[in-house]
């Protein structure tokens, strides 16, 4: 009587093959075989991983949770450029300057292009500069096209709080002074090309000193109240000095205060010469 008959040979060969395949695939795709050491997947190209944290909003408001937790997410290293936005327009003609709905952008949309697509000279001049004169709806649509989204105010401010060397640069006097000095300068004709500034602690560039940026929930920067005509909402809309109700009045972060004031002046359709955006993305 044979000990190893045909069936058992087949069985063994099958098992061995299975084992080899498993081993080989572990070699080729190690992440599948075992999770990565730190559990963080690689960020998509052009983005950085931002670890979670907590953001303390500027104003104490009754009924709103404070401080706001920020879950880990990815953020674009650079703002979206004119070149990138041009690609979006090509794929989505309804967002061309001549086609866009007045519900989604005001009359100054892409004014600096002067046409549906910029001339070659204009294109070269603006290609690597952040795109401006785009509305919130346009920024939102672009990010969606990229399977991304706009960052929330908490996410943006959390990342922007960092200096070059620390996650919280609000106590670095020299750094804060430099930020404040940007507001002393008149607005430039165009924001500088991306990468002009230093990358901050998170590896994110051009958050300061370039232009203002859209965030997903800029409209919730103030308490909505029962209706738009509510006096409370109106009070917060124009606001007063930085000391009123600020979470840490003795350490007022003036640049953050001015960004907050700027956001309150915006509507979704607004396009402004110094207002652009970058995208964020949830972890998989």
């Amino acid at each position: 009587m044979k000990i190893i008959n045909r069936q058992s040979w087949v069985g063994m060969v099958f098992l061995v093959t299975l084992e080899c395949c498993s081993f080989l695939s572990a070699m080729v795709w190690p992440s599948w075989a075992a999770p990565a050491e730190d559990g963080v997947p690689e960020p998509p190209s052009g983005m950085q991983y931002i670890v979670g944290g907590v953001y303390a909003p500027l104003f104490k408001e009754a009924g709103v949770e404070q401080p706001t937790p920020v879950a880990p997410f990815y953020l674009d290293i650079y703002p979206v450029t004119n070149a990138q936005y041009a690609a979006f327009i090509k794929a989505n003609p309804r967002w061309r300057r001549s086609q866009v709905s007045p519900l989604l952008a005001d009359v100054a949309y892409l004014r600096h292009w002067q046409a549906d697509t910029p001339s070659p000279e204009a294109a070269t001049a603006v290609a690597q500069r952040p795109v401006t004169y785009v509305s919130w709806f346009a920024a939102h649509a672009y990010c969606r096209w990229q399977q991304k989204r706009l960052p929330s105010t908490a996410e943006w401010e959390y990342v922007a709080l960092a200096s070059a060397t620390a996650p919280d640069g609000s106590k670095e006097a020299a750094y804060q002074t430099r930020l404040l000095e940007w507001y002393a300068l008149p607005a430039a004709a165009m924001p500088p090309p991306i990468g002009s500034g230093q990358k901050n602690y998170w590896g994110i560039s051009d958050l300061h000193g370039s232009m203002w940026e859209w965030v997903a929930d800029f409209q919730t920067a103030f308490s909505p109240g029962a209706s738009r005509g509510d006096a409370e909402a109106e009070r917060d809309r124009f606001c007063s000095s930085g000391a009123l109700g600020v979470s840490e009045p003795e350490l007022v972060n003036y640049p953050a205060l001015m960004r907050d004031a700027y956001r309150r002046s915006l509507r979704g359709t607004y396009t402004v010469h110094n207002l652009g955006f970058r995208c964020a993305k949830d972890l998989p």
């Binding site: 005001d106 100054a108 009070r235 809309r237 124009f238 002046s265 915006l266 607004y270 402004v272 010469h273």
Partner: peptide, 11 residues
């Protein structure tokens, strides 16, 4: 008038 005139650049 401040509550009714809060205006972004270009608006």
């Amino acid at each position: 008038g401040a509550t009714s005139t809060f205006t972004a650049p270009g608006h």
